[in-house]
Computed example of a mutant assay.
Amino acid sequence: MVATNLKSETMALMDKRSAMEAEMNDIIGHLCQPGGPGLSGNLTDSEGFPLSDIDIPVVRAERHRLSELRNDHRELTEKINQNIQVLHSARLPSGSSPPNESGNDDGLNNQNSPFVNAVPSASSPNAMDVDLMVSVPYAFVDVIADASPAAEDGLQLGDQIVKFGNVEAGENLSQRLLSEAQTNQGCAIPVVVMRQGALINLTVTPRTWQGRGLLGCHFQLL
């Protein structure tokens, strides 16, 4: 009964998080539209006067709301992760413990992850539990340039990054994401994103183009 209630709570939290993500995507889309102020662009000209073509109070309000949503999204994701770990622990056989993950802190090798090597049995998570465990995003696309490799390969503004090549949630994400792109320059990288609550599999190839970087987009960590 406790596990059932916790699962229901987790699903409700995920629905709430999806609603937050939709609102975040709307705000990002408005701020980052062509000619828009962007997420952190200057709202004054070189002489310090307010830009006449931008509704500054609205932009400030949207940026403030986006900051609030990001903080709430981070806290909600942490709560979901905690619930998932409790659900998984409750399904372990009596006297057993999760596989030792020591020496695997970089998150690149999934062989020791209890959330990946789930074997169907009376004590293993069912398919819905596994979906919950592996679909927690750790970043989202907040900037994407037109005609960039990321745009041409199917990434969209607001996509939630669940997996980028070998990079999943963990420590040193910025460095690992950069390294993954540089190491695989010219090679296709499998990417899993959450878009409007649904998981989508893409293939992105980091490569040189007329713009900056190998992808032409920016991942904002959650």
Rank of each mutant, 00 (worst) to 15 (best):
Q33M: 13
A147L: 08
G165Y: 05
Q182M: 13
M11C: 08
Y138E: 10
L13V: 07
Q85R: 07
A61V: 08
E168K: 15
S8R: 15
L108T: 05
S18T: 10
N83Y: 01
T203M: 07
Q160P: 09
T208D: 10
S148T: 00
H88W: 10
M1F: 06
R91P: 01
F219H: 03
P120Q: 04
L87R: 06
N100C: 14
F140S: 14
R65P: 02
V167C: 07
P98S: 11
P34T: 01
G170S: 13
S8M: 11
F115H: 12
N166Q: 15
S40C: 04
P34C: 03
M133L: 10
A19Y: 03
S67Y: 06
S124N: 05
I189V: 12
R212V: 13
E168F: 05
M11A: 14
T183S: 15
G48S: 06
M11D: 13
D106H: 02
G186V: 07
S52F: 03
Q85H: 08
L92V: 01
L222T: 13
E62D: 04
S89I: 10
R207L: 04
D159Y: 04
V130L: 09
I56M: 03
P50Q: 13
V192K: 14
M14I: 09
S97P: 00
K79A: 12
V2T: 09
V204C: 04
Q175C: 05
A150Q: 06
E21A: 14
V59S: 11
G35T: 06
F219K: 03
V58R: 11
A188K: 11
R195Q: 06
E180S: 05
F49I: 11
A90D: 07
V86P: 02
C217Q: 04
W209K: 03
D55E: 12
G197T: 06
S179W: 00
M128Y: 12
L51A: 05
K163W: 00
D153M: 06
A181E: 08
V167S: 11
L221Q: 08
A151V: 05
L13P: 05
P93L: 00
E180H: 03
V191P: 06
I144H: 03
M1E: 14
T77I: 13
